[in-house]
Amino acid sequence: MPHLNAAQRHLVHFTLNGRMVRAEVENRMLLSDLLRHEIGLTGTHVGCEHGVCGACTVQIDGKPARACLTLAQQIRGSNIRTVEALVTDPAVLSPLQAAFRHHHGLQCGFCTPGILMSLDALLRERPDAGRKEIREHLSGHLCRCTGYATIIEAALDAAEEQRKEETPNA
């Protein structure tokens, strides 16, 4: 990482949901603030700004990460995915999102984008993840509405659905 002058804004460029983005930001600008307030993608939510609640989770090069603990300057050249990238057709929910709706895996929806980004990464990397693994994976997220049970059911259902799609004749 180059040495940055604190008094100046610096250019940062990265891939966001498949498109190249260039932004000129202060060194101290958080990734969460860049996404939400400079670029205008407000699907990534900010709940605690100290890395505990998990609401701001995005994917950096495929790995779930806290946008509130990441400086915008740290993501130069990275590939960022946010909740807005989970659907290709805006009118059709992804299997994971559809499972959340079916199982009532959300109420206020504020923590949901972060949880979806974590689960999306897990299910891509570990399609066979079971209940225990999903629970452990979600232990870095706080949800105050649902009591978690329906989130787990939704995740298990989505994993199952994904496995079926990948092996259509099974």
Partner: peptide, 21 residues
């Protein structure tokens, strides 16, 4: 009946409109 919620499609796709949005 336990119907699916009309709120959810927006909330699940990052299109919720909370105060900071």
């Amino acid at each position: 009946r336990t119907v699916e919620r009309v709120e959810d499609a927006g909330l699940l796709t990052g299109r919720g409109r909370y105060i900071d949005d």
